[in-house]
Amino acid sequence: MLLTGPNGSGKTSLLRQIAGLLPLDAGTISFAGFDRRDETHFVGHAAAIKEALTVSENLAFYCDLYGSKVAAPDAALARLKLGSLASLPARVLSAGQRRRLALARLVAIRRKLWLLDEPDTALDMEGRETLLAIIAGHRASGGMLVMASHGTLDVAASRTLALDTDAKAAA
């Protein structure tokens, strides 16, 4: 599912509400057949990277924390073209590299539901293509995806929810 809409229309809020990181004003969110805490990936605006740790330590921490690895952390880093930077402290990474490190979590850890908040921020063309390939792979294996985007990513969404400022109350 693709969420579109202008700034301030509530894309981020809705994603955080689905993740359970923000209280609902009204209504409920139900998950059919799985537990949110066990099956959710959340990639928000903040990349959740510790600058004092190395690139591979950053990823390995989340692999250990979340469990259920599907790919070796090294392979995930290589997929995102971070392999040569694995042993460097994360503080030297550029904005695009930080974003890719955050996205490496998607590759390394298996989760059914991905909640991505403008995941292509700061990515270059090549990075976007990698991201699209990763998303396509996730969907091909039956994964779900809710993504907020300004339409800069070329995905064929099965559903698109256009949010505007009036629809915020309804959402």
């Binding site: 073209k81 971070l82 040569s84 930077l85 460097l88 402290p89 030297v92 990474l93 550029s94 695009g96 590299q97 270059d124």
Partner: peptide, 10 residues
Amino acid sequence: LTIFAANEAR
């Protein structure tokens, strides 16, 4: 050199 390596790899 570390920062340089990170910039090279982009």
